[in-house]
Design a binder for these strands. Structure first.
Lengths: 350, 350
DNA sequence: GTGAAAGCGCTAACAC
DNA sequence: GTGTTAGCGCTTTCAC
């Protein structure tokens, strides 16, 4: 049997109450007494039973996080980096992480209900907002503190605290970059429809084209599944529709790698024949194909800030909704060369 | 106030006891009654208070995992891959993960004591065994189910359940590979002393040399910190001691990348002037420098199996200690070419 | 097949 | 400063 408060009480000659207060650091305990009690407790190797405490005080000192199960994982690298930021910040403030891997769907919602309704966590971090996000609706309704990475889709109410990157500006910057180099036929591989950030990225693409006086052609835009395979298929479709495309922007790095594979399999050379750009997902940029232009997001830092802001809510330091936007970085590598063919002057026809 | 058993009882007209049993799926409840109770419970949105249940039944349905804090993180990629395997397998069996990020040291031990002694977890997964591992000693003594990735150091008792890779054979295979290509001056960058697997890797290196009839020269061996910087420094030292080295084996991929950087900074070419090999840490091999020869471990699968075996212990399916060895794969890429210089026939002198 | 009651280990009124 | 006591919400004898 484990040592409990009662044992420390008996051994030290004080009551359970006094022992509890002494150990909790309350001020109304004689210093003498406290020292003695602490002494006894540590000599007995006392460890408080945490579920009992949690039941009593309705706090757990843990944060909930539901990550996508592998089969549906859009990008491991992204989540691991985020997780490290969240984990480090949480641990530094004395919080544990309660994690469950679930694919979107009913089991995922049940997981949130269990964590939140079951009093397992003091707050929740939610990643990758979806359109009409059921999870956010649930958390708001439960009035539990939570922080979100990613604002709501355009037109939807965004009455919750979040951190986001201006992905619209980021994609626009990529397009500007390419048009600046003379590219005029630029393809885009979008994330799935249901992701809240997808419309922002499309908007950024359109703005970039407009900046350069280029027309928007829906045939240059496809949707991928955020996996390598999605990028590969997407690039195939784009090049099939228009073999004269000179640059492809994928909305995450994994799809960009897939696009590169497709390009190579067509016996074209990435960076010479066709430029490719990605977006964040592989923060360890050093490992990535050096010919990939990409948008870098400070994912680790985002994880840390999510925790900081969440703890502000939990510990009552700030009740207002916060909307934080972090800066991105355009990382240009070898692949963003000028387009290969007939100059860039003449307007294109569809 | 959240709905509790009492509310469901009142609303359904049955006692708390019966409601509890009906919901728990006990057989001694009238089917009629059960249906009615379940109906009422779900209409009220009942969610059991988990800390209360945990207190009562002394089970939490979660598994503990302490990961290294970033500053001390040897390799994020490695841990994220492992985490995904662990997370998926745990979720599939209805377990959550309780995670804390801690650097080795006193706070780390306190974390284990809190999780285990505080009744927060039903079992623990421990990664990267150390020499005289205090964590393992603690867990054994507490008699809590736990699984370890990595056996004990040679000569130390290994009376706990673990999964491991035969890293001795793996390093030997790398050396065999290089000597087979004609390399005769092969450097080795070892992991830190305190890691339990370090001696196995050194032994594999020595065996490989012996296989080829080459002498073992301690000057060809250095220790790194498992980070990129450690590999860079290590390679510098090795090349400083003997500029004629034609191959370097780093004991993880990150150090291998560091070694490559050092080589390039000396205006040598990896794969032509000097061959480089790594070991596991970056499972997403596709992203890695294509000129890296490496040993691949099935890290995701190891994570899954760790959970499977841990649950066997927790749920009483198997009480015996298990020692599982999983196979590695030698992945040969561009860099393992033949040595650059004066042929491979003459024996080397130190 | 169902209910009354005890108790898991802790914290927090409240009394002294 | 310290002790008595109630009770957090659940499961589980035990009685009927």
């Amino acid at each position: 049997m484990a040592i409990k408060l009662k044992d420390v009480a008996r051994q030290s000659g004080y009551s359970i109450t006094t022992v509890s207060r002494a150990l909790a650091g309350y001020s109304d305990v004689n210093e003498q007494t406290r020292r003695h009690i602490i002494e006894v407790a540590s000599s007995l190797g006392y460890q408080p039973n945490l579920p009992a405490r949690q039941l009593r005080i309705r706090r757990t000192n843990s944060l909930g996080l539901v990550i996508p199960a592998r089969d549906h994982s859009y990008s491991n690298e992204f989540f691991s980096q985020l997780l490290m930021g969240i984990g480090d910040a949480a641990a530094q403030s004395g919080y544990d992480l309660l994690i469950s891997a679930q694919a979107p769907g009913e089991a995922e919602m049940a997981c949130y209900r269990r964590m939140v309704g079951g009093n397992l966590v003091d707050g929740v971090i939610l990643v990758r907002t979806r359109r009409h996000d059921e999870r956010i609706a649930y958390l708001s309704q439960q009035q539990i503190p939570f922080m979100v990475f990613g604002r709501a889709a355009p037109g939807e109410p965004c009455n919750f605290s979040f951190i986001d990157i201006d992905s619209q500006a980021a994609i626009r910057a990529l397009v500007d970059h390419f048009t600046g180099l003379g590219h005029r036929r630029i393809g885009l591989i979008l994330p799935p429809e249901e992701m809240a950030f997808t419309p922002y990225r499309l908007a950024g693409y359109q703005e970039g084209l407009e900046n350069a006086g280029l027309p928007y052609d829906p045939a240059r835009v496809v949707t991928g599944d955020l996996l390598r395979s999605g990028g590969e298929q997407g690039a195939r479709i784009l090049l099939d529709r228009d073999p004269k495309i000179t640059a492809i922007i994928a909305c995450n790095d994994l799809m960009a790698l897939g696009a590169m594979r497709a390009i190579e399999s067509l016996n074209l050379q990435v960076g010479r024949d066709i430029a490719v750009a990605g977006y964040d997902d592989i923060p360890a940029a050093e490992y990535a194909y050096p010919s990939l232009t990409t948008i870098h997001q400070p994912i680790y830092e985002i994880g840390q800030r999510l925790v900081t802001l969440l703890l502000d809510q939990i510990e009552g330091r700030n009740s207002a909704h916060s909307a934080v936007f972090l800066p991105y970085t355009l990382v240009v590598r070898a692949s963003s060369g000028a387009p290969r063919q007939e100059g860039g002057a003449q307007p294109e026809s569809s």
